[in-house]
Design a binder for these strands. Sequence first.
RNA 1: GGUUCCGUAGCUCAGUUGGAUAGAGCAACAGCCUUCUAAGCUGUGGGUCGAGCGUUCGAGUCGCUCCGGAAUCACCA
Length: 598
Amino acid sequence: MRSMENLLRKGVREAIKNLYGAEIEDNLLQVQKTRKEFPGDLTLVVFPLTRITRMSPEQTAHEIGEFLIKNIGAVSAYNVIKGFLNVTIAPEEWASKLYLISEVSDYGATPPGENSETIVIEYSSPNTNKPLHLGHIRNNLLGFSLSRICEAAGNRVIRTNIVNDRGIHICKSMVAWKMFGNGATPESVSKKGDHFVGDYYVLFDKKHREQAAELEAAGATPEEARDNAPLMIAARDMLIRWEAGDEETVKLWHMMNSWVYEGFDVTYKSLGVEFDKIYYESDTYKLGKEIVLQALNEEHLIRREDGSVWIDLTADKLDHKLLLRSDGTAVYMTQDLGTAVIRYNDYHFDRHIYVVGNEQNYHFQVLSLALLRMGFRWASGLHHFSYGMVELPEGKMKSREGKVVDADDLISEMTDTARTMSQELGKLTGYSETEKENIYRQIGLAALKYFILKVDPKKNMTFNPLESIDFNGNTGPFIQYTYTRIRSVLKKAEETGIEWRHGKENTITPNQKEINVIKLLNDFPAMVTEAASELSPALIANYCYELAREFNQFYHDYSILGEADNGSRNFRIRLSDLTGRVIETGLWLLGIEAPERM
RNA sequence: GGUUCCGUAGCUCAGUUGGAUAGAGCAACAGCCUUCUAAGCUGUGGGUCGAGCGUUCGAGUCGCUCCGGAAUCACCA
């Protein structure tokens, strides 16, 4: 549509010049799509022009309309309603538009060029003490989709993950395993490694609360009880030994982390997300400390009497923020400083996008400012992609209390639902069980992914585990279904030996349903660009839905292969083919697979 | 209390730099399969866009003030 809009803009510009002898500013030239209730394709908002024309909006619109009809070939009709000039583009123009864009290879994607940016995207960032849950799913899907969208918009993208593999929370599951595990392993109890370790994290919390309750009953304050419970002492003790490099502790840490990684790999694989480079906090926190100490020497920071190191951000309306503890150990911020510097040295990125929940808005404000203050100018390219939380009807998810929607469980439930539905419909005859299972998986995941990605990332979303995610209507499977219909038509066309690609009839006058689809197809490249600049997978998701819906109407009202006129039939096949390709690309940008049949 | 974000149909969500009579899906009801896949298509009902004031020819969209919800403001990550 953009190219058509530009055509109209140019025409209006000429009209104003010829009729009123005036040049017009861009912001007064408002061209938009015509709303469905009104006849026409594009609408010029005339109100802003009346200042120049010195006539009523209606009169202005009529004069410009007349001029367009006479001078712009593509414009076939116009009408005026109030201050709106609705312009109809000749159906033949849409037809030739389709021929044009259907010949473009990788339609919608821009290859990297001179002006391409290098963008590092960090997402996922799990803790290695518990399995992934629905919140992580949102993070992973957003991050992965963003990476593909940025790539399609012509950027070089590096997908990274920072694994939070050290700290007191990791030690908690280690302590619990050591004390209550009796040497069990994921293999010995046949449990996925991340779930296995996560169970000990939950167990730690349970036992710790029991101990704290005992201490409280014996007269301790709640804080004392929490801090002095034997398990908590053991965890802190283990952290100190870990930082000191104690051999036995480090060995245990390696072993338990490797269990978790094996589990994560399975989940990442079934979610279909990937990374180019994985960073570990245990590798980056030391550099963070060095950077802070160096900046301290250069007088960017403040050292208090107790030895702790701070940055003063009151000038930026923030607070004083701790960068190193009084005992010299690192905090969360310290390691993020280190990670950012390592990444810049690795990739010299133009932009660095952190896909992290909105609970950490403050943290990332501080991170950028702190780096800038320390003289790292590239830190202006840091961007916190802040997304909303996924909540349960009863509130926030809590791993420690086991109140979570587990990622693996949810994925397999989605597959189960897809299997049940598909078997009821019974359309997969001729496929092997393996092929069928793969399709169930694709459909189930599509439902889940679309459900999450269609929502504006900024907004918190509620997930009710009791209400299943839909497979009909505005859903991922609906879009996939449209794709399979198209594939089915194209396959049949091929089997029948129709050579539709050679047809380039210029005599086609498309009907309204066809035009509606072409308009949307024509929008696709602009949608990808916009989704990249807005960082919004939701734009792509909603676009795909709209396209699928529009195509289904066309599909319902007209026969494609049954069309008697060969030119018209070939045109419809071409339309279907491009729609299929755009849907496939659109879904790909969302990380959703497009099955041939379902 | 400070800062940031959110509030649109019973539910889940769209709504482009301000533009026309605020749109989808789910749920409810009524239709459409001897024709390319009915996970589809068509129709009906459902709204003081949290409230008010302001800016404007024009406000769901911008500004201000309230109301409601969330996050954050740790020598936790």
